[in-house]
Nucleic acid binder design. Structure first.
Lengths: 350, 350
DNA sequence: GATTTGGATGACACCGGTTACCATTTCCCG
DNA sequence: CGGGAAATGGTAACCGGTGTCATCCAAATC
């Protein structure tokens, strides 16, 4: 029983995973040719290919991503880099990425980070470099940091930046076009007949804060309306800041009859502020949010908001990363769109 | 310029990543010894170790996870397998896992799945097998599926199951002990003086549904209270089911003065149902949720609920998986705990 | 019919580590 | 001081693929 094992012995244990050599031997070709089939090289005769594919199917062979990655010089991993604290955003984005990666052989590794940390850039670099990631998807606000993008370019790691406007060459950008969402909100409130309209922005560190506002303001102006300086206040995309700014706005005189909050969290805060001030939504004041996360339909009244197709955006981003963009889809599905619920109505005609 | 490169030429480009051979050469040892240092083998003289470590630090060397994984036979990846649709749960769990993995050299790959899919088990197996995952963390309700655990054992992939009760050998289990949370809710409502108490359970496919209920019921009984059959209804852990069941319960006569919902989503639905029925919370009816996700503090009134330490649980799970459990922490931090907010009060004394 | 041409295939080194096994050195003891 | 065990380092094979380049062969060209 001390006879050393040779390839002729067959599989070591019946449970051993087949490798490329097994396939090559059974198909009567070299491993290189099997490799060609795996990688869809055109230089394989159809007959040979079929024979190899049959063996692959029979043995249930799947190439080892690690070995492939080692030889190829890059791991078959795609990173999601984010610092957005909203769970709904993160999960939707992940689902979108996974949609796009399905069947590609890539896997998703997640990398939340803190842009405020002094070691943020170092951490990011070492993460991507050590893992030899194939590519990364950067989402706001990391995506808006030029240094992060530069690092990726440096390392030679593919990257796609998801941001509200273009900040890079087209192949590196997926634009969420938040400005259009701001316009939708403005159009809706203007159509309802509001004129005393207020806006609670997100923090300036997010590009979307600016875009949502300027789209909103722009569309108001086009309709002969104006966003008064006192009615344009700055929040932080948080529930608490929504309460604060809402309270302040609702104490003003004249009081705005409509408030557009830069995201749903702040809109929830504004609703709370209205309640505390004894005001009724939408009778006394209309409220519009942005994002259409789950909370929007759980609030009372349910929130009119601008839906952002995060999952769809995620799929696009990863498809671009892998160079498998499918252009057959309706481009409208990538744009923000208004969802009207109970929190908006015409201003009270008093 | 056609002279072939030899190791003596030094790094190919200044940008080339150092590898184990570079370290060995510069430290004047064999790569095997460097490998020993990397893997903390005790059979290296202190002096040698220091010299090697100095070179590693100087060159900023980090071993390639792919090469290491290939030779080792397992990838340095840990999978999170989940089918819980709640984004807050998923994100908290991910954060917990990442907490525990920090500095370990492992990375997190996420794998949402659909237990209802006919290919669920196959998909899971092929995912884990192909990637040669080091280990996986299974969360409810996947964690409650024996077949999933069996597959992991089969493949030889380490696994930890997060579930409300023990379903496996201790080394494979992290128990969330939801029963205790149910008890907390019962104690709170009993102390407030409620006697007409109702319960909306989650779906039977989740073990936690049963545990939360039986803990609740048990603690009520201990206090001489009783959960009437008509007051124990089955929901689906969804907002909509909370509205439905809430509506039905609040239409009963006598009407319950307190409702314990199996999670926050359903509690949000119950609040909505109360509003629609013209009832005030907590004056007419008290409501308690479970989970303490963000929504609990965004609702109106804010929700009294049982906090589940998901992030902490995630950290524990992954530490157990890696065999790096840190037992120094307060074991209480792993248990559900009551968070009292505005949605509960003594029953109206009419 | 000899020579190109280019598709199809294979041999072999290599990616960057680890393990198996052997060789050497050091240390301890009789 | 010799013998043997323990400590330490080296060599080669291997993990499972891919890249480079040579080779083979059939069809195309002259």
């Amino acid at each position: 029983m001390s006879k050393p094992r040779t390839p002729e012995d067959g599989p070591a244990e019946s449970r051993r995973r087949p490798n490329i050599n097994d396939i090559a031997r059974l198909a009567g070709v070299s491993k290189k040719t099997v490799s060609r089939v795996i990688n869809a090289s055109p230089f394989v005769r159809a007959e040979t290919r079929e024979r190899i594919e049959a063996v692959i199917a029979e043995l249930g062979y799947a190439p080892d991503p690690q070995a492939r990655g080692l030889a190829y010089g890059r791991a078959f991993l795609i990173g999601l880099v984010y610092d957005n604290p909203n769970p709904q955003y993160v999960v939707n984005m992940q689902l979108g990425l996974l949609d796009g990666m399905k069947g590609s052989g890539f896997e998703l590794v997640v990398h939340p980070c803190d842009r405020a940390s002094p070691t943020f850039l170092e951490d990011l670099r070492s993460f991507v470099e050590r893992q030899r990631l194939f590519g990364v998807v950067l989402t706001p606000s990391v995506s808006e940091d030029e240094r992060a993008a530069t690092i990726m370019a440096d390392i030679g790691c593919a990257y796609v930046r998801v941001a509200s406007v273009s900040l890079d060459r087209p192949e590196h950008m997926i634009e969420t076009r938040d400005r259009l969402g701001g316009r939708e909100a403005a159009a809706h409130l203007a159509e309802l007949g509001h004129t005393l309209i207020a806006f609670v922005s997100g923090p300036p560190s997010f590009r979307s804060s600016h875009e949502r506002r300027s789209g909103f303001e722009e569309a108001l102006e086009e309709r002969g309306l104006h966003l008064a300086k006192a009615f344009a206040v700055e929040g932080a995309y948080t529930y608490e800041s929504g309460i604060e700014r809402g309270r302040e706005l609702l104490a003003m005189s004249p009081r705005p009859t409509a408030i557009f909050a830069g995201n749903d969290e702040m809109a929830a805060g504004v609703l709370q502020a209205a309640r505390q001030a004894g005001l009724s939504v939408p009778d006394d004041v209309s409220v519009v949010g942005f994002d259409d996360f789950q909370i929007a339909s759980r609030l009372w009244p349910t929130l009119t908001t601008v839906r952002t197709p995060t999952r769809e955006i995620g799929r696009l981003a990863v498809e671009r990363l892998m160079g498998r963009e499918d252009d057959g889809r309706d481009p409208k599905s990538r744009l923000p769109s208004l969802v009207v619920r109970e929190s908006t109505a015409p201003p009270r005609g008093d």
